[in-house]
Design a protein around this nucleic acid. Structure first.
Length: 560
DNA sequence: CCCAAGACTTGGAACAATCTTC
DNA sequence: GAAGATTGTTCCAAGTCTTGGG
């Protein structure tokens, strides 16, 4: 896909697609499924019923017990009610959705119990839709579209403590949709009886369809799949920028260390923030509108209350204790020894401030990024995350890979290197619900395997003894086969043990995000080539499609 | 310069498909 | 061949950074 270069800002010359798929229309509940208000059956209007089903479907979720969720939901629900409904239904606590909820559970169950043929039919229908709407033509290529289905209406579920949780996410209609395609393409037809909000031909952007969502008022897009030329090329560029940073990172580090001593407060704050971004892989931390989203922060938006200074802690000097909620309300907790100058600066920044005051009051992401732009073209805060993630992977792979290991052990090393990056980037997950049980199962498997091994060894021993006495071909052969059996079981045991270690270490760590977004895939491809590891062991099908450019490009000796 | 809008990347969880085990 | 475990896919929210207009 590296055929022609477009002039600055032009993303394509030809773009043709079929438009989006809309959410299926609401199907009213059967007559026998009842809603109760204050203990009495109540028949709801279609619109009110639809919104009620959104709530009923979430009844088992903790969300529906939360004050804010209930308040937001009830407010938006009432907007959909008829005036009679509005005057009757005045208290959410008197609403009984359990019958509706049971009905949906039964439906889910029924779907699971469907016959093979029925399931096959649904699958075929999905494939047909994918074939028709899932692809577009961009310039000379047929490309997969990422999200060609419009999000269905429902209740908004923010993450963490979101002030808007429970609000009604309205149904998107063709009249909300902006279509983007080229003039000379076949323009997608709106559903019968409808029209698009707008059809435009903007080849300076990559999206095919957009609409404005009603919760935050932000724009949503339909774009291409990661396997597409346009995404792949951008991804490649991202890593090339990070590699350019590698060349000048020492200089930049020296620079910000100098700046810790600056007379100007703004420069000092910038230098300390950059130190954190570099050392701890923190995100930039843009300002957010208060009350519109969950209260989370990144580096530039850290507040005094998010750090504690310890002149000495556990035998270490100048320790900064971080405790804040980052993106997606994931907690960042870390105790980091820092250089004395950084520590002194932090003390200075915190002087005469309230806990809720900004730590870096003279700094924001735009100031920081402008500075970075001067240090290196294309440099922004997030490049440090990419750079540090990728360089860490490369180092860790070098350090951890043992040439004598077999393939499973080498893959464990790979996962450990990946894990080091995930820890750096603070990619956490909730421990899987079945984690403990799965762990125990695996342990009993290991125990069983150990016993099997002991048995096999005993048998080998007696076969050897037997062979010594008999000295015939048959017993010799028996020894050989017993030896092989022992070896095989040893290998199986080792594999299980490796698996157990890997899983235990991975309990609360999410590897996916770093693998997909931060690690230069060429490092992994080169590592696979070097050690003869099949690429499928590292990347599944989707990942191989996304990283096709890297698999194509990288040789064994690739250096990030 | 500031701000809001816009475009695009990054994020964990839910859900679905597939594999393993009994 | 059903149930449970595991892996892959989809979903859509939540960030980053750029752009354009005052």
């Amino acid at each position: 896909w590296e055929e022609e270069r477009y002039p600055e800002g032009i993303k394509w010359k030809f773009l043709e697609h079929k438009g989006p798929i809309f959410a299926p229309p609401y199907e009213p509940l059967p007559e026998n499924v009842k809603f109760y208000y204050d203990g009495k059956v109540m028949k709801l209007s279609t619109k009110a019923e639809e919104v009620a089903t959104f709530f009923a479907k979430m009844l088992d979720h903790e969300y529906t017990t939360k004050e804010i969720f209930r308040k937001n939901f009830f407010k938006d629900w009432r907007k959909e009610m008829t005036s009679e409904e509005k005057s009757t239904i005045t208290n959410l606590s008197k609403c009984d959705f359990t019958h509706m909820s049971q009905y949906f559970k039964a439906q889910t169950e029924a779907r699971k119990q469907m016959s093979k043929e029925e399931k096959q039919k649904i699958k075929e229908e999905n494939e047909r839709l994918l074939k028709e709407y899932g692809y577009c033509v961009m310039d000379n290529h047929k490309e997969r579209i990422a999200n060609f289905k419009i999000e269905p209406p429902g209740l908004f579920r923010g993450r963490g403590n979101h002030p808007k949780m429970g609000m009604l996410k309205r149904r998107i209609m063709p009249e909300d949709i902006i279509i983007n395609c080229s003039k000379d393409s076949k323009i997608p037809a709106p559903p019968p009886g409808h029209k698009w909000k707008e059809v435009r031909h903007d080849n300076k952007v990559t999206w095919l369809v957009s609409w404005t969502e009603n919760i935050q008022g932000s724009i949503k897009y339909i774009m291409l799949n990661p396997s597409s030329r346009i995404k792949g090329e951008k991804d490649w560029q991202k890593y090339e920028t990070a590699r350019r940073l590698k060349k000048c990172v020492d200089k930049i580090r020296n620079q910000y260390r100098e700046d810790w001593k600056s007379k100007e407060m703004k420069v000092r704050q910038r230098a300390v923030a950059l130190y954190f971004i570099d050392k701890l892989a923190l995100r930039a931390g843009n300002e957010k509108e208060e009350g519109e989203t969950a209260d989370t922060v990144g580096c530039c938006s850290l507040r005094v209350e998010h750090i504690k200074l310890h002149p000495e802690l556990d035998g270490q000097e100048y320790v900064v204790e971080f405790d804040f909620l980052g993106k997606d309300s994931i907690r960042y907790y870390n105790k980091v020894p820092v250089e004395k100058r950084v520590f002194k600066n932090l003390q200075l920044f915190m002087e005469n401030k309230q806990p809720e005051d900004d730590l870096f009051d003279r700094l924001n992401t735009s100031i920081l990024n402008k500075h970075l732009q001067d240090l290196m073209e294309g440099l922004t805060a997030k490049v440090f995350r990419t750079y540090n993630a990728s360089i860490t992977l490369q180092q860790q792979l070098k350090e951890l890979t043992n040439p004598d290991d077999n393939i499973p052990a080498k893959i464990l090393s790979y996962n450990r290197a990946n894990r080091a990056v995930a820890i750096l980037c603070n990619h956490q997950r909730a421990p899987p619900k079945t984690f403990e049980k799965a762990m125990m199962n695996l342990q009993s498997k290991i125990d069983a395997k150990k016993e099997q091994l002991a048995d096999a060894r005993r048998e080998l021993k007696s076969a050897k003894a037997d062979a010594k006495v008999r000295r015939d071909e048959k017993s010799k052969k028996s020894v050989e086969s017993k030896k092989k059996a022992v070896q095989r079981i040893e290998e199986q045991l080792m594999k299980l043990e490796v698996q157990a270690t890997d899983r235990e270490e991975n309990k609360q760590i999410a590897l996916g995000t770093s693998k997909l977004n931060y690690l230069d895939p060429r490092i992994s491809v080169a590592w696979c080539k070097k050690w003869g590891i099949p690429i499928e062991k590292i990347y599944n099908k989707t990942q191989r499609e996304k990283f096709a450019w890297a698999i194509d490009m990288a040789e064994e000796d690739y250096e990030f």
